[in-house]
Design a binder for these strands. Structure first.
Length: 637
RNA sequence: GCCGAAGUGGCGGAACUGGCAGACGCGCACGACUCAAAAUCGUGAGCCUUCACGGGCGUGUGGGUUCAAUUCCCACCUUCGGCACCA
């Protein structure tokens, strides 16, 4: 691998950071963990930007005295505890501070070392090493002079690329100070700690009482955070600021497959956007895939040569293509109007469908895809192209498929080819197993033997339909009790499966269907209505076999056009209840009572049970708790 | 390190709002059918104890609230996922 400096295109998603964060509130149909991940990713933090003046160290470098070093901090309350400052290695002032001084060489050597550090080495060093620049800054709070260091524990990309270090109250600063023998000054002490402590074993980042901070001594650190901040703002050396962790979205990719970036470069006009009438820019067909550094598009003469939309002079097309996340950020809008050749989508048609009522995707898209889609929707909303500013009302995040304890992936080589499963058992079995094995939002543990179970279940249904449908109604009349039992189970199943589907609880819905099929296989004969209803409930899970059996029962039309069955509330009622009886919370017996029985009668029956008598005889009954239709608990002393 | 999710039989998993823990399936054992096997059907089982009836224990660990806790509260352990010097 090689690092290269490239000039690339970004989308300014940071302009939407605040709205993307605030509108997470609106996403009531989204799982909480996804919302938390998005909040963390956006990473809003309120703080103070403070300017530290540079000390005029040497006469010939007088100009440095006019510079100041800007830092971002969320802890203005610790400013009296600053004992040094740190710049990111890439910070422009690093070069300026050291040019022509005796510090130039060691600093350059450090920068070189850091540049080639791998991720692993960075972790190893844990931000403990760094070098002094020879320059001092002045703490605007107390005029104290403090040394300015360089270290790669400070990131150029976040905040201002420079930090004020407070080793007493920040663990990273503490470790750095220990390693490099820099002073530690305590300015906050714990509430429950009376004497000032002399030394620390680790930083104290928590809330406490202010010390060694002049007029702020005695305040709580959270009070002082506001007060010191305001004080510095008043002095004109600081301003309140909000920073985001979210970066702008780099969309340039040096690959073929992706939408071309619609920009041309003109020697006179610079980078110019392709005019709307010439959109979309299509990918060229005459490309070579060389596997070398630049985008394959750069080898297509026809593609590269263009006319500048502004001056009509000669121009060159951008040869990078867009990140494929661009396309996945609005495809659902295109789905609303997929045949449109005039525009990406028609406003009215999109508004008729949007926002998406139920979106289902893997948990791996919790952040990027879902955040980018929200961003796109907000931009389009602002442009008046869609009427909703959030794309997905309800979100279900599927778990991943796991095999042998690891997530299934090509790189791990533990994939199961669905074609083999389908060839051996059929698509219905494959689907049945996947839905039955675990709830959709959880991981799915792949199991070859469990597939056999799904296959067996479908075979059993096949036999039930073939065997039971032949024996017709005459026998049923002789067994009215059994018929009632089957009908009751059928209607209970309709209720349960309907509710489970509503909750996306497919595994329990299938379990209910299995229970019903067990019941059906015990019956001597079954009417077509029962079997038809059963098949309709089966059809979402095993559409092929359901359709096939539907026609074997001489039904017309397709099963997927049938109405979902409704249960009869009268038929599902049990007329006899089994009530567990506890003594002091321990299950001792189960009694059978009529569903219509009064509370007093049930309590009486419970006490009359032989088993219960054994436990309660000779003891005083303190009270009897009856939870309607659920249980009786006799409390004795 | 921070944030999040989860921990239930041999296994995948159920359990509404605090009310019979283990639905349903896999695997296992035994039986039926068969010359035999496969397929199919039936029966059984959380663990310990008892010839048995029964009893005790049991939802990661330790406490707590309650007549009653897988479910609520506190502390901790483990696994998985996300972020990772974000000042």
């Amino acid at each position: 691998m090689e690092e290269k400096k490239l000039e690339q295109w970004f989308l300014k998603i940071t302009d939407y950071a605040d709205r993307l964060l605030a509108d997470i509130e609106k996403l009531n149909g989204w799982p909480e963990p996804v919302k938390i991940m998005q909040r963390n990713w956006i990473g809003k933090s309120k703080g103070l930007e403070v300017d530290f003046k540079i000390k005029e160290a040497e006469a010939q470098r007088w100009y440095l005295g006019h510079k100041s070093l800007r830092v971002f901090t969320t802890r203005p309350d610790t400013i009296f505890g600053v004992t040094y400052m740190v710049l990111a290695p890439e910070h422009p002032l690093v070069q300026e501070f050291t040019r022509g001084t005796k510090y130039e060489q060691p600093v350059r050597a450090y920068l070189e070392k850091v540049k080639h550090r791998t991720m692993h080495e960075r972790e190893e060093s844990a931000g403990k090493d760094g070098v002094f620049t020879g320059i001092y800054a002045v703490n605007p709070a107390n005029g104290q002079e403090i040394p300015i260091w360089v270290s790669d524990y400070v990131l150029l990309e976040y905040g201002t690329g420079a930090v004020m270090a407070v080793p007493a109250h920040d663990q990273r600063d503490f470790e750095f100070a220990e390693f490099n023998d820099l002073p530690v000054k305590i300015v906050i002490r714990p509430r429950d700690f009376e004497s000032k402590f002399l030394s620390l074993k680790e930083a104290f980042p928590d809330e406490g009482i202010m010390v060694q901070s002049v007029q702020f001594d005695g305040q709580t650190s959270s009070e002082a955070n506001q007060n010191i901040g305001d004080w510095l703002v008043e002095k004109g050396v600081a301003r309140w600021k909000t920073n985001f962790r979210l970066r702008d979205w780099l969309i340039s990719r040096q690959r073929y497959w992706g939408a071309p970036i619609p920009i041309v470069y003109c020697d006179i006009c610079g980078a110019v956007a392709v005019e709307e009438k010439d959109l979309p820019v299509l990918l060229p067909r005459d490309v070579k895939f060389t596997g070398k550094g630049t985008s394959p598009l750069s080898y297509s003469q026809k593609f590269i040569e263009a006319v500048c939309p502004k001056c009509k002079g000669k121009a060159w097309r951008e040869t990078d293509t867009m990140d494929t996340f661009i396309c996945s950020s609005w495809y659902y809008l295109r789905y609303c109007d997929s045949k449109n050749s005039k525009a990406p989508f028609d406003r009215e048609k999109a508004n008729a469908w949007m926002p998406v009522d139920q979106y289902i995707g893997g948990i791996e898209h919790a952040i990027l895809h879902l955040l980018y889609s929200r961003f796109f929707t907000k931009v389009l909303f602002d442009e008046g192209l869609v009427s909703s500013d959030e794309p997905f009302t309800n979100l279900l995040t599927q778990g991943m498929v796991v095999k042998d304890g690891a997530k299934m992936s090509k790189s791990k080589g533990n994939v199961v080819d669905p074609d083999h499963i389908i060839e051996k058992y059929g698509a219905d079995t494959a689907r049945m197993f996947i839905l039955f094995a675990s709830p959709p939002e959880r991981e799915l543990e792949w199991s070859d033997t469990a597939i056999e179970g799904a296959y067996r279940f479908l075979n059993r249904i096949w036999r039930i339909i073939h065997d039971k449908s032949k024996q017709q109604t005459s026998r049923i009349k002789t067994h009215p009790n059994q018929q009632n039992q089957t009908t009751k189970k059928l209607h209970q199943t309709i209720k349960a499966v309907s509710e489970d589907l509503e909750k996306f609880s497919f595994n329990t819905a299938i379990a209910r269907l299995m229970e019903l099929s067990n019941e059906l296989s015990k019956a001597d004969g079954l009417d077509h209505e029962t079997l038809n209803t059963f098949l309709i409930m089966l059809s979402p899970f095993a559409p092929h076999i359901a359709e096939e059996l539907w026609h074997e029962l001489r039904n017309k039309d397709s099963i997927c056009k049938q109405k979902w069955p409704k249960f009869d509330p009268v038929l599902i009622v049990e007329d006899e209840l089994e009530i567990p009886v506890q003594v002091n919370g321990k299950h001792r017996d189960t009694i059978k009572v009529s569903a219509a029985a009064a509370e007093e009668d049930i309590k009486k029956t419970a006490q009359e049970s032989e088993k219960i008598k054994k436990f309660i005889s000779g003891s005083e009954i303190v009270k009897i708790i009856y939870v309607p239709k659920r249980m009786v608990n006799i409390v004795i002393k």
